[in-house]
């Protein structure tokens, strides 16, 4: 970007850094593609049940029949209509992923900020605790808890959130520590601003953009891991329609009736990829904005 353009821009705002970042992100093709992809799947998941004409658990024919006028995507391993199950099968995945992500990011954010702004000892113990959780591969932690307490949706949400916490906390901690080294934090300390106020009013605004990027990564991971849990049989239980579960149930028919597997596979994949593309677009915009500020 030339300085002429930079000038033009700096003269026409004041605008908040967020809106600048967002506009820059929207100018990237990948952000737009990502928004369209994830928007499509999210809309389908949200409004699918409204579009559906019949009960997803109704048997409409023999198992594994290819697409026909009656069942546009054919039937599944029990002879249920794949399309109807697809229309119903995204909502649970969506709300579970969203809740898990929001919970994980918020708690991780709080822990990371406290650790990053604390003395060595508090910082050390908090991060060590995070390391302990991190020692479990995400899916293992989830599977162990689910196996003992049963495949309860809230438990899965909590466990997935738990697996996000150390990752978000580590990122937040390093961002906070960078931020705390700046003189404006000392300036706030020099007028006896309470710690909580410094964290919320001075530090937090500097974390929002990197955390927005992180949240998209976490969301894509939530989708992947919650779908994977259903896939390995520890998530949503039959006969409930769910994309992850459908993939597993219909695997045996992959050769005969690929649509029963591929439809949910594509939807999960598009959602994860779409969310990631948006995140990458924001990330690129952030680094672009920083470069401009640096000039």
């Amino acid at each position: 970007m030339t300085s002429a353009q930079a000038n033009a821009q700096s003269e026409q705002r004041p605008r908040s850094a967020w809106s600048v970042t967002w506009r820059t992100a929207l100018r990237q093709p990948r952000t737009r593609v990502g928004l369209v992809l994830s928007g499509f799947v999210i809309a389908l998941a949200l409004f699918g049940p409204l579009l559906s004409r019949s009960d997803p658990n109704e048997f409409v024919g023999a198992p594994f029949i290819g697409p026909s006028g009656e069942a546009l995507l054919g039937t599944d391993f029990l002879g249920q209509d794949v399309l109807q199950r697809v229309l119903h099968g995204g909502r649970t995945l969506l709300w579970m992923s969203l809740t898990a992500t929001i919970l994980g990011v918020l708690i991780g954010l709080a822990i990371g900020m406290i650790a990053g702004y604390s003395r060595r000892r508090v910082d050390g113990s908090l991060m060590w605790l995070m390391d302990v959780i991190l020692a479990f591969p995400q899916i293992v932690l989830a599977v162990v808890f689910v196996s003992m307490l049963g495949p309860l949706p809230w438990l899965i949400v909590l466990v997935v959130a738990l697996t996000h916490i150390p990752r978000v906390a580590r990122l937040t901690r390093s961002l906070t520590a960078d931020c705390v080294r700046q003189e404006y934090i000392e300036a706030a300390e020099a007028i006896a601003t309470p710690k909580s106020r410094i964290l919320i009013r001075e530090v937090l605004p500097n974390l929002t953009t990197p955390l927005a990027v992180e949240a998209t990564i976490r969301l894509a991971w939530s989708v992947a891991i919650i779908a994977a849990l259903s896939f390995v049989g520890f998530g949503v239980q039959p006969p409930f329609p769910d994309w992850g579960l459908m993939i597993n149930e219909n695997r045996i028919g992959l050769v005969v009736q690929p649509w029963s597997v591929l439809a949910p596979v594509f939807l999960v994949a598009i959602l994860a990829v779409g969310v990631s593309l948006v995140g990458d677009g924001i990330a690129r915009a952030v680094s672009g904005v920083d470069e401009r500020v640096g000039q």
Partner: peptide, 8 residues
């Protein structure tokens, strides 16, 4: 660094 970049 003496001014918070995110505040006016």
């Amino acid at each position: 660094s003496s001014l918070n970049p995110r505040r006016t």
